[in-house]
Design a protein around this nucleic acid. Sequence first.
RNA 1: GCGACGGUCGUCCAGUUUGGUCUAGGACAUCAGAUUGCCAAUCUGGUAACCCGGGUUCAAAUCCCGGCCGUCGCACCA
Length: 496
Amino acid sequence: MLVSSNTMTSYDQIMKLALERGFYFPSCEIYPDAPAGFWEYGPVGVNMKNKFIALWRRELIRRDGMIEIDGSQIMSRSVFEASGHLRNFSDPLAECKNCGSIFRADRYLSEKLGKLIPEGASEAVLNSMISENHLQCQNCKGEFKPVTRFNMMFEVGIGSSNDVAYLRPETCQTIFVDFARVFKTMRGRLPLGIAQIGKSFRNEIAPRQSLLRLREFYQAEIEVFCNPDRLNEVPKFDEVRDITLNLVDNKFHRDITAVECLKQGLLPNKLIAYYLALLADFYSRTGIDMKRTRFRRLADDEKAFYSHLAFDFEVETSIGWLELVACNYRADYDLKGHSSTSNHNFEVVEPNDQTKVLPHIFELSMGIDRSLYSILEHSYHEDFRHDDRVVLRLNPYLAPILFGVLPLMSKPNMVEKSRTIHSLLRKDFDSVYDESGSIGRRYRRLEEIGVPFALTIDQQTLVDDTVTVRYRDSMEQERISIGDLKKFLDAKSAVN
RNA sequence: GCGACGGUCGUCCAGUUUGGUCUAGGACAUCAGAUUGCCAAUCUGGUAACCCGGGUUCAAAUCCCGGCCGUCGCACCA
């Protein structure tokens, strides 16, 4: 039993580990004009990210029979006319002429005047309201410049004529735009999940806290296309009915199962219950402490403009509750929009009764970067019994490196044997070879980046072809013959 | 974006108050050699930094201005 604690794990400790060991670090850091909100994954981080994605594919995509696409990051202007992002993905801003403070014009007005400002109020309307009511900056009593709109999308110019296009602010638009072709060519049937992993781009005003609020970030999105009249026809629901969802609406329903949520009317239908449970099941395999997670039902004023019903999957971290996944019932908002803008027909035929239906969409929009941060924080332990060693207790299938090969002594015959053993395994697993420093130091180095196993080559190896396997968490050891190592490592790195 | 505070080796910190032996120091980490040989041992040696630009000055890590970045608060988070 590991005597340890991660109750003290802080953002700063994870940041330090990330910088020192190559998980992630600031983009363009050698130049003084490096903009905020852009971060790179180093060698260790990228391995972990790839493994997280592999787990996502295994536990969500393949498990549920979803299909996956990979689209362009730059998309045409029309896409965002149809999606509503050109209209809604921007805020009217009022800037003080004097001190430069910026306020959201509509909210500022409604706060100061005590009345509701309509969502789509034009700049002209907002300007005249400001001047009629003689509103001044609340910080310095300065006057406001005319209201401008700030859109969070990055604009790019295409070709020599610089035609306007945008970096996608969410990956899911590709899935909507491609839906008709993908559904047809893959002979789809509702309900069908179409998924995508990729980068999205948002011009955040104040990016902060490394991976937690980025301007360029990874999303893993799943769009479930469904028949709105058949949201309770989900035979697979029984597989997940007993999975725990910590649901929060106006009160916390801790340890409530998916099936109980349905019975109590906390979730509206089986389809939503099924996918929330699937998501919870996935995260329970990442090493995140599920006792420190919740599904929070968003109030109407918190929801995105396209969302009819929204649950955030949140994780408790040292800096508070962090949104990892947005689960939105988008209804027919997207396909309707793309349909009318493009004149493309997105209806599909239900095979059993030949009715035409415009699918509704339930979406699971996962932030990969935040997920990885949360896994790191929940996995970070200090072992007070052994010199406060830092142990990253990652599940083997998420560990950036599965094992290290270590000669006990740097004697030529032992080094040679170790290299031979490593070359037997290195193509099948992410691994390192290390002969530098004392054996204890090398163990410590490995466990800090979550390497679950160390294979130590000693005198006995040279005699009987066995190695010592040392376990990261318990520090226990056992002897395994070289011929069995691949099978052993396969078994140990399997998802359970 | 506003405000407050800050930015020195990979990481953490000393040095800035009062400009000058700072040719920038330490710890940890890292590399090489010696030694040891199953849990961060020891010894020796090495690599490695004043965020960027401008200004003041005989002289700037240190003072001033601007920018960039970071932390926190406000605002924002579709």
